[in-house]
Computed example of a mutant assay.
Amino acid sequence: MQIILCALIGYFFGNINPAFILSKLKGFDIRQRGSGNAGASNTVITIGKKAGLFVALFDIAKAVAASLIAYYLFPQIKFAKILSGACCIMGHIFPVLMKFHGGKGLASLGGTILAFNPVLFVILLLFEIILGFSLDYVCVVPVTGSLIFTLAYAIMTGDPVGTSILSVVSLVILFKHVENFKRIQNGTEAHISFLWKKDQEIARIRKNTND
């Protein structure tokens, strides 16, 4: 029962989606514009940079909150933080309140890592910033980040249950980004440089889409 409650706490927090709420306040559904995902990167595209930053910080914070609440409520469960954080990610990706169509889990993954180990979070953040800007694509960050975190968690804790949970999450994140990699292949995936070259990126994507 405690394990179920731990999972439900995470999933409930994951269902709180600021990108969706902000878009509704603006009079549209964010899942019907831009990349079609209810997350920070699509918020930048459809609403703006400040809104995107708010969404990213909120999604990080909700995963931290879910992980720490579960940890303090159920200290006897060794993998409480990871289970609740993982369920928060899954709740963000597959929210029942949004008919299972949410975001892709990057910021919530970051929050789960932050709750587990702040030092590891900083190291992974710096690595992923370098990697993301080097390749100029956001989608490589959650895929590599989830895989590296799973490996790091396994080495640092030796916990097979938590590692298995994170492995499932990594596979889900990879699956959710298959379309992104397909768009990279055909030249229609937005670069990170969209942040400062919006018009050029939109023109490039439209051109490649028409071609």
Results as ranks from 00 to 15, higher is better:
residue 136 D to T: 00
residue 120 L to M: 15
residue 99 K to Q: 13
residue 145 G to C: 04
residue 2 Q to F: 15
residue 139 C to V: 04
residue 106 L to R: 08
residue 148 I to D: 06
residue 156 M to C: 09
residue 119 V to Y: 14
residue 155 I to K: 10
residue 2 Q to G: 14
residue 1 M to C: 15
residue 182 K to Y: 06
residue 180 N to W: 02
residue 166 L to E: 07
residue 49 K to F: 03
residue 51 A to T: 01
residue 42 N to W: 00
residue 11 Y to L: 06
residue 89 I to P: 12
residue 149 F to W: 10
residue 5 L to D: 01
residue 108 S to N: 07
residue 124 L to T: 02
residue 197 K to M: 04
residue 103 G to M: 11
residue 211 D to A: 12
residue 197 K to L: 02
residue 157 T to H: 02
residue 75 P to Q: 11
residue 48 G to M: 03
residue 120 L to D: 11
residue 126 L to D: 03
residue 49 K to W: 01
residue 58 F to M: 02
residue 18 P to E: 11
residue 190 A to E: 04
residue 81 K to A: 11
residue 65 A to S: 09
residue 83 L to H: 02
residue 43 T to S: 05
residue 94 F to C: 13
residue 105 G to I: 05
residue 65 A to Y: 15
residue 78 K to G: 08
residue 193 S to T: 11
residue 22 L to M: 09
residue 27 G to K: 10
residue 161 V to S: 02
residue 160 P to T: 06
residue 150 T to A: 05
residue 101 H to P: 04
residue 34 G to D: 02
residue 15 N to Q: 13
residue 196 W to A: 12
residue 102 G to A: 03
residue 198 K to F: 00
residue 27 G to R: 11
residue 117 N to H: 13
residue 195 L to C: 04
residue 51 A to F: 05
residue 178 V to D: 13
residue 27 G to C: 10
residue 21 I to P: 00
residue 39 G to L: 08
residue 106 L to Y: 15
residue 194 F to L: 11
residue 120 L to R: 08
residue 143 V to T: 10
residue 5 L to G: 01
residue 77 I to E: 10
residue 205 I to M: 12
residue 48 G to P: 01
residue 169 V to C: 12
residue 201 E to T: 05
residue 209 T to D: 10
residue 172 V to R: 09
residue 143 V to D: 06
residue 5 L to W: 13
residue 53 L to R: 02
residue 10 G to F: 14
residue 158 G to L: 14
residue 23 S to T: 03
residue 55 V to E: 01
residue 109 L to F: 15
residue 115 A to P: 05
residue 163 T to W: 14
residue 133 F to R: 07
residue 90 M to Q: 08
residue 62 K to L: 06
residue 35 S to F: 06
residue 72 Y to F: 14
residue 65 A to I: 15
residue 152 A to Y: 05
residue 183 R to Y: 11
residue 110 G to E: 08
residue 121 F to N: 04
residue 200 Q to K: 12
residue 91 G to K: 10
residue 95 P to F: 04
residue 142 P to Y: 10
residue 82 I to P: 00
residue 30 I to F: 05
residue 76 Q to C: 09
residue 84 S to Q: 02
residue 34 G to F: 00
residue 34 G to Q: 02
residue 189 E to P: 02
residue 77 I to D: 10
residue 33 R to H: 14
residue 56 A to D: 00
residue 57 L to K: 05
residue 180 N to E: 07
residue 37 N to D: 07
residue 39 G to C: 11
residue 115 A to Y: 03
residue 176 K to Y: 13
residue 111 G to N: 04
residue 58 F to Y: 05
residue 52 G to A: 01
residue 151 L to Y: 06
residue 184 I to A: 05
residue 134 S to T: 14
residue 118 P to E: 10
residue 3 I to L: 11
residue 110 G to C: 12
